[in-house]
Design a protein around this nucleic acid. Sequence first.
DNA 1: CGTCGGGTTGAGTCCATTCAACTTCGGTGG
DNA 2: CCACCGAAGTTGAATGGACTCAACCCGACG
Lengths: 239, 239
Amino acid sequence: MLEPLYLQLLQHDALSDIERAMLAEVIVTGKDFAVGQDLVVAGSRPLYSTVVVEGLAARYKVLEDGGRQFTAFQVPGDFVDLHAFLLKTMDHGIIALSPCRVMFADHGKLRTITEKAPHLTRLLWLDTLVDGAIHREWIVAMGRRSKTSHLAHLICELYIRLQVVKHTDGTSFRFPLSQAEMADVMGLSIVHMNRVIGALRKTGLISWANHTISILDWDRLAAVAEFDPTYLSMTNEPR
Amino acid sequence: MLEPLYLQLLQHDALSDIERAMLAEVIVTGKDFAVGQDLVVAGSRPLYSTVVVEGLAARYKVLEDGGRQFTAFQVPGDFVDLHAFLLKTMDHGIIALSPCRVMFADHGKLRTITEKAPHLTRLLWLDTLVDGAIHREWIVAMGRRSKTSHLAHLICELYIRLQVVKHTDGTSFRFPLSQAEMADVMGLSIVHMNRVIGALRKTGLISWANHTISILDWDRLAAVAEFDPTYLSMTNEPR
DNA sequence: CGTCGGGTTGAGTCCATTCAACTTCGGTGG
DNA sequence: CCACCGAAGTTGAATGGACTCAACCCGACG
């Protein structure tokens, strides 16, 4: 069940058998969530952290007027609330965008990892740093990219991240979000989101139907998005 | 010189004398940067990480069309590129917005901290997690807040962060940015940035002149911003 | 005294929003 | 079986927000 987590960590650095065993011992029990359920509730103080092993989830915040903003996608292998281990209080919620299977890691055991396994600690730390790098890229996209470019960038990001955990099918991947949910990703109205998607479709660079996105021309899509995967830190080197 | 760093860490948890001494041994040499200079260059692979001890800096990315987007402010005591210790390659630059004094921590010595001092490691990790929490708040502000509310939120964030490191003067603080630079924070044109600032001034909640912002009514400003400081994780507890 | 960077204002255009209508499609019950 | 329903997607039209272009003000500085 932990394959996607291993695949992600291996993207950054080698992982010893001992470290693998340690993770397998710490991350236990499974639970399933239906679409729309919160994997983690905003404002809670969890005593364990959650790894998504199957499905798509997202971080989000809700404002007083009911407006919702997603701040990140979470794919299989993501340690979605590892930060709660140290931040203690969740400042946002995490919702299942497709049926999700997750596993849990007790915070006490995570602390033991930081005491006994410095290299593994650095890899987990790195995981949260990549989250931060993705956030920065989202800020840039929201502030200074055109809407079409922003959408193209999100598609590039998801494709690469899903590819790492073997959840792509050639140039396609499953993408369960409705256009209304996408609007809450990009900070747009539903109507305008629909028009932006229509515009990107018309370029012929992607197709998007039946909850599946296909990339028809990666090079030109990446050019539209100005996509540079450096921020995902996918070089295998000693950390 | 490291007082602001200590002040920030103490905001989250206790810091032993040994840990203090360890930091003082690891973080050495000083350097001054003039306004507009890069403290850290995008694309570089630094062998040390940088602590701002005086001045205001910001993370930023530049797009092909020349558009610039700031993604975070860095105040005294911020370990601005601690993440480069594990990410290796800087995916963005860090620029001095006022004259800055910084100090450096060799990556080899930071690694030693992760091997020998698990509690201090967790505190440094936490520091990067708070960065991530701030990023999420910026994404929400860019996507779903009104422009006035976004600006108010930025002012609240900066006031609280500067207060922690004793860089406020009553309800005022120094803020060296031009309106053009602020436009690159909020993702607006210069002209519209000017109008948003004018609108917030007209509410009477703040004044902003001579590179100094004064908060005239914190409660109402925080209400406009829907500012909830939870995300800054400023509770002192075992981590 | 002239210049330059920053701030401010007006006007016209374009982008994004709202409101509203209508379509498509899968599911459900009569 | 199909009539109905609701959720999601699509389209048009009008309003309001944000952009560009342009002009002008002002204080610092040579």
